[in-house]
Amino acid sequence: MLAENILKHLKKEGYKFTNRRKLMVEILVANQDKFISAKTLCKEVQQMYPNVSWDTIYRTLALLLENGVIEKREFGEKGSKFRLVCHHHHHHHVVCLSCGKTKILDKCPMTFIDTVFDDFQVVEHRFELYGYCNACI
């Protein structure tokens, strides 16, 4: 997904974007294969805009979450991290707890689990494996 496509979509929905917010979208696009924290995102934005406020960071993240552009996951003591929503086919992720890098897991465990429930209808599920990639071991 390209930053310009995201910005066009949001502009069409009536949202304005400052250069700081545009940069945030560009950073998320550049890191679309991993989850990143708001702190990391803020540090990267501050390289170009040293006075960017935390309010700007969090308001923009909330706007992107609300519009289905990004997704949020909790990483225990490391807090929340964000990444662009995958618009691929149905899949799941393997996620590195250290660097946030993700890989797609094409096999869905629901094909095995679904046969176990004869008195329960699953309407939504999420499956992710967390560990450490080879670079972080």
Rank of each mutant, 00 (worst) to 15 (best):
Q47P: 00
H9D: 14
C42P: 00
R21V: 01
T56N: 06
E26P: 12
A3G: 10
H9I: 08
K43I: 07
K16W: 06
N19R: 14
A38I: 09
L10G: 03
K11G: 08
T56K: 03
R20H: 09
D33A: 13
F17R: 01
K43R: 13
A30L: 14
V45N: 01
I57E: 02
D33F: 13
N31D: 11
A38H: 10
F35H: 09
A30G: 11
N19P: 08
I27N: 07
Y58T: 06
E13N: 05
K43H: 12
E26N: 14
Y58C: 05
I27C: 05
Q46A: 12
K8E: 13
S53E: 10
Q47E: 13
Q46L: 10
S53M: 06
A3I: 11
A3W: 12
Y58R: 12
E13C: 02
Q47I: 06
Q47W: 00
Y49R: 02
K34N: 09
L28T: 02
S53C: 07
D33K: 15
K11Q: 11
L41M: 14
F17A: 04
N31V: 05
N5E: 15
T40I: 11
K12Q: 10
G14D: 13
M24S: 02
Q47G: 09
D33Q: 14
Y49M: 03
S37K: 09
V25F: 00
N5L: 14
S37E: 06
L28A: 00
Q32F: 14
A3Y: 14
C42F: 01
L23V: 04
L23I: 06
N31P: 06
N51K: 09
K39P: 00
V29D: 03
L7H: 03
V25S: 03
K34F: 10
A30C: 07
K39D: 12
V25Y: 01
E26K: 15
L2E: 15
F35M: 08
I27V: 15
D33R: 14
G14H: 11
L2D: 11
V52Q: 00
K22L: 04
T18H: 03
P50S: 13
Q47F: 04
I6A: 02
Y15K: 06
K16P: 00
G14W: 10
Q46H: 08
K22C: 02
I36F: 09
T40N: 11
L10E: 06
F17M: 08
C42T: 12
S53K: 08
I27R: 09
V45K: 03
D55R: 12
L10W: 06
K39S: 11
V52M: 04
K43F: 10
H9C: 07
Q32R: 15
S53W: 10
R20A: 08
L7K: 09
H9L: 13
Y49P: 00
N5A: 13
C42D: 13
M48H: 12
K8C: 07
S37A: 07
Q47C: 05
R21C: 04
K16T: 10
Q46Y: 05
M24D: 01
A30E: 15
D55W: 07
I57A: 05
I57V: 15
S53T: 15
P50A: 10
D55Q: 12
Q47A: 10
F17H: 10
L10D: 04
N5S: 15
Y49F: 15
Q47L: 12
F17E: 01
M24Q: 09
L7R: 05
E4F: 11
Y15P: 00
W54S: 13
L2T: 05
K22W: 04
R21G: 06
E44F: 02
K22D: 04
W54D: 11
M24A: 07
M48E: 12
G14Y: 11
